[in-house]
């Protein structure tokens, strides 16, 4: 096994183009677990991306109302201002990842590259309709997050492509992330959800993790909630929230495994969505 440690994006892309079967190593928080468990053998070439400075920066474009995050930005960096202020749901999701050591190592790009259905950052990227910049020796292209995530640990990236950066809108309106695991920390989500309000467009986005082969957007629940909100006051009827939970549960498509059952996941994700909606809006008609 050879380890390549490029320091520029060009070098990384060139190496990957020459060795499309190479393994890309970002924080290693997924790859090392798979190697330790014997589920994966390191390829003959491993390209470590942590010294690629182009991947380690982010920028806020105030005019465009966007934040562009290099793929090598860690969860720890996402948890702290100013990023946390600009993208509160991503910060909330990052805080639920693993332990401090894992959050120091794990990156947003790696989260997307692995594309686990339980990846904590991914429902947020989906809810915010992230744009992904993908580079290769052939050039670069922009893709919608919805076209990148295909299935369980499956993306639309070509073998010679890597994720350079991810662009997210800075929205006015509440946004948050919630998850249930099998213990309180260091745990893979059994069900997770992100809810993001767009006050400008008077819309709501809801994305679910761990309850399907990849992240699920709940269009029906989103529309139901958006139409139930009084956008002048931010008040929503209690019963509408209950309905959102039902629609979210119905949109999920979970499996049973040793961590939990499909029934539990379907139920829990509805509860999470309902609670996020309750945090996002003022509730009318709450029983005392």
């Amino acid at each position: 096994m050879t380890l390549a440690v490029p320091t520029s994006l060009d070098d990384a892309v060139r190496l990957l183009d020459e060795h499309p079967d190479a393994m890309l190593l970002a924080g290693g928080t997924d790859a090392m677990v798979e190697i330790n468990d014997g589920h994966r053998r390191p390829a003959s070439l491993v390209i470590a991306l942590n010294r690629v400075s182009d991947l380690r920066s982010w920028r806020h474009d105030a005019d465009a109302g966007t934040v562009t995050i290099g793929a090598g930005i860690t969860y720890t960096e996402l948890m702290e201002p100013p990023l946390a202020t600009l993208l509160p749901a991503l910060a909330e999701a990052s805080r639920t990842v693993g332990s401090p050591q894992i959050r120091n190592a794990g990156t947003l790009g790696g989260n997307l590259g692995t594309c686990s259905p339980a990846g904590d950052g991914l429902p947020v990227l989906s809810a915010l309709d992230a744009k992904v910049r993908i580079v290769s020796a052939d050039g670069e292209r922009d893709a919608s997050i919805h076209d990148v995530m295909l299935g369980v640990k499956r993306t639309s990236l070509e073998p010679n492509e890597l994720i350079a950066e991810i662009t997210l809108p800075v929205r006015s309106g509440w946004q948050g992330y919630a998850k249930v695991g099998v213990r309180n920390a260091m745990v893979i989500a059994v069900a997770s959800a992100c809810l993001a309000v767009d006050e400008t467009n008077q819309s709501v986005a809801i994305a679910l993790g761990s309850v399907g082969p990849t992240v699920i957007r709940c269009t029906e629940a989103e529309q139901h909630l958006a139409s139930a909100v009084d956008w002048d006051t931010g008040v929503v009827d209690h019963d509408a929230i209950g309905r959102v939970g039902e629609l979210v549960s119905a949109a999920s498509s979970p499996i049973t495994d040793h961590r939990s059952t499909a029934e539990y996941r379907r139920h829990a994700v509805g509860v999470l969505a309902r609670r996020l909606a309750r945090r996002a809006f003022t509730i009318n008609g709450v029983a005392a």
Binding site: R183, N184, M186, R259
Partner: peptide
């Protein structure tokens, strides 16, 4: 220790 769930400090 990934899937056998010892309590963490948060637990």
């Amino acid at each position: 220790l990934n899937e056998y769930l010892l309590p963490t400090v948060s637990d």
